[in-house]
Nucleic acid binder design. Structure first.
Lengths: 356, 356
DNA sequence: CCTGTCGTTGTGAGCGATCACATGGTTGAT
DNA sequence: ATCAACCATGTGATCGCTCACAACGACAGG
């Protein structure tokens, strides 16, 4: 397009027609430049909001951009600058409520500034994780977010090249990277203290796998709360987040008459426990008080409605993005943000039998 | 570059050392070429598995690649070829089980061939959807997958440029694009016929919002199954997928004594119904039989364990990727794949009161 | 021995942006 | 009036790769 009056009959450039173009995607920066009657560099300046462009020129360029429906090529820009607007997110291939909510929260927080690409790993072991992050680095992404709730992730991430802004979510602070995490321990404390406040003295815990940092933190919070109340913690029942494991734990608990309350490390295990109690004809919360963790959308509709601990995943996503932006813009340091959970009180906890 | 033995002491180019390099990402194709003693074009041929390269040369190049830990720059390749290995997925920002499982299934199916980038939309209206797809096209993605379970998506996608391979998932066939979808209607039939087989004659349905294609399909299947059995369908109760809406529907149903069975359009609404029945002291399945849809992981632990319809989201993801590959490779046509659901029988359905 | 074809490799020109630097016109201070 | 400083703009190189085409040698057929 464009060809001024001077060379109207000269040899045609590759891009002839204005709209339909054979080879590539859309119009290029030179097309805009020609239409606006400026150099490609001036167009580039307008695109990048460089201050030293006369307002009048700016508007001419903007008009040309609009007329041609021009969109700058990310590939070319990446090639020229050596950095891109793509964010890599590494997460685990699971439909667990936590990780998948986190992903959505992150995506939401990144909108418009960045393009988010996701790699889901079958297992979060060191090798797979390192490889995934390396691949992102090779692709010259602007930054990487690793959702790393597993212990195994910690060590793998320690010896990663420093080349790229990176934020861990739900990981452990000692990796030396920027980190956003939920205060699992505080959440567990909230849950346990809620049960303590009803007078329960024998509060059991069904945990997640001990390979999960979330799990470890919740165990610690539970134990700490009990100890602070001068109560020695009963043995730990380890589950695997699945309702099935909660169900098994429920059957186990049913055989322990002195257990009047249980804190489950997630809502789905709590559901398993509830199910077991239903089967055995135990009444809740009268015979067993239960507190869960996560506040999945359906928790309010369990029978009894589950008292649980809520995490604001959207907030976590926002914090992570903020930390990442800081690093991208100013090469900032490895700070750490902790998001506090909140107790959601419903019907699944009450005073123990003896108290009534 | 090039510096043969001749100018070894000449002025150093930007990239001096083999491994550590200041400016950009890693070694470039020319570095590999130099080390292997061939031209950059030969390296390119090896990278792209061009047939006419002598085996010996090939190996030399491969060795050089390995030694330098060279990774080709996606940006440069995209710029040069005009196409990339990035897949754009457009979905809705929800943590609903279906959409999010779909996303994971898709990601899994794409692994290694493509990089998947996700755009989550707050609402799937025409404008937002079109814009998201356009943005992907501007970025010269290799293909686009749209998870479009809403009616509103249908029209928006009809008048989209043909420039890019595109596959709809969970959309409607009349958009004229390639499509992978679950046979919602057949699933609903399965559920309804299961209830019919117990002798139920008065089978109600709690549907999803009528803006969802899934929802519409399930309603149709339910009605069709009833009509085939010579039973006029009772009025439809419309929910919104949430357990809360199921709960309300449950209370409504409780007032209708002749309703002996209900088919809920998803498991979480089924949970809401169950919850309402618990509250009202109705026994399930004796007083009300329930069948759900989705088979969420926790459905087996509802009380009663939920009979439901399962969709294989991994399969859907695979099919979508396959369709997309066909289009990318051969510019193929707009074929359509339908995945069949399966009934998962558990405890929430039994014969109606009168039959016992 | 000349010529044509094929397999293998190299050369140079893009792709579409940015960056470093050069240029020319205004200003304001000397 | 002179010079520096600054603004607005343009020029050409460059990023790392692929593409089109050229070049070269080997080997066949006339």
């Amino acid at each position: 397009m464009r060809e001024t009056e001077l060379d109207q009959n000269g040899p045609r450039r590759r891009r002839a027609g204005a709209a339909a173009r054979p080879g590539r995607g859309g119009p290029a920066i030179t097309d805009v430049a020609r239409l606006a009657g400026v150099s490609h560099q001036t167009v580039s300046r307008v695109l990048n909001e460089h201050p030293n462009v006369r307002e009048q020129t700016r508007l001419r360029v903007l008009a040309a951009i609009k007329e041609l429906d021009y969109h700058p090529s990310g590939a070319a820009r990446t090639l020229a600058t050596g950095r891109s607007t793509v964010l890599g997110v590494v997460t685990q291939n699971s439909t667990l409520f936590g990780p998948s909510s986190l992903l959505f929260g992150l995506e939401q927080a990144a909108t418009s500034d960045f393009d988010v690409t996701v790699t889901t790993l079958r297992s979060l072991d060191g090798i797979a994780l390192t490889r995934a992050v390396r691949r992102y680095i090779d692709q010259q992404v602007a930054g990487v977010v690793v959702i790393a709730p597993l212990v195994t992730a910690r060590d793998a991430l320690a010896d990663l090249p420093e080349r790229v802004p990176i934020v861990l979510v739900d990981g452990s602070p000692d990796a030396g990277k920027a980190l956003v995490t939920a205060d699992q321990s505080a959440g567990a404390r909230l849950a346990t203290e809620h049960l303590l406040s009803f007078g329960h003295r024998n509060i059991w815990h069904v945990s997640g796998p001990n390979t999960w940092l979330d799990s470890i933190g919740r165990v610690e919070g539970w134990q700490a709360a009990l100890r602070d109340a001068g109560i020695p913690p009963p043995p730990l029942i380890e589950g695997d987040w699945s309702p099935a494991s909660g169900y098994r734990a429920g059957h186990l608990l049913a055989r322990i008459p002195e257990a009047t309350a249980v804190f489950a490390a997630n809502d789905h295990m709590a559901l398993g426990i509830i199910r077991a109690m239903h089967e055995l004809g135990r009444r809740m919360p009268e015979e067993l008080s239960i507190v869960g963790f996560d506040d999945v959308p359906e928790a309010a509709f369990f029978s009894p409605a589950l008292t649980t601990v809520r995490l604001d995943f959207t907030e976590i996503g926002h914090q992570a993005m903020q930390l990442l932006r800081e690093q991208i813009e100013s090469g900032g340091s490895a700070s750490c943000r902790v998001v506090q959970p909140a107790l959601v009180v419903r019907d699944s906890a009450t005073a123990p039998p003896g108290d009534r």
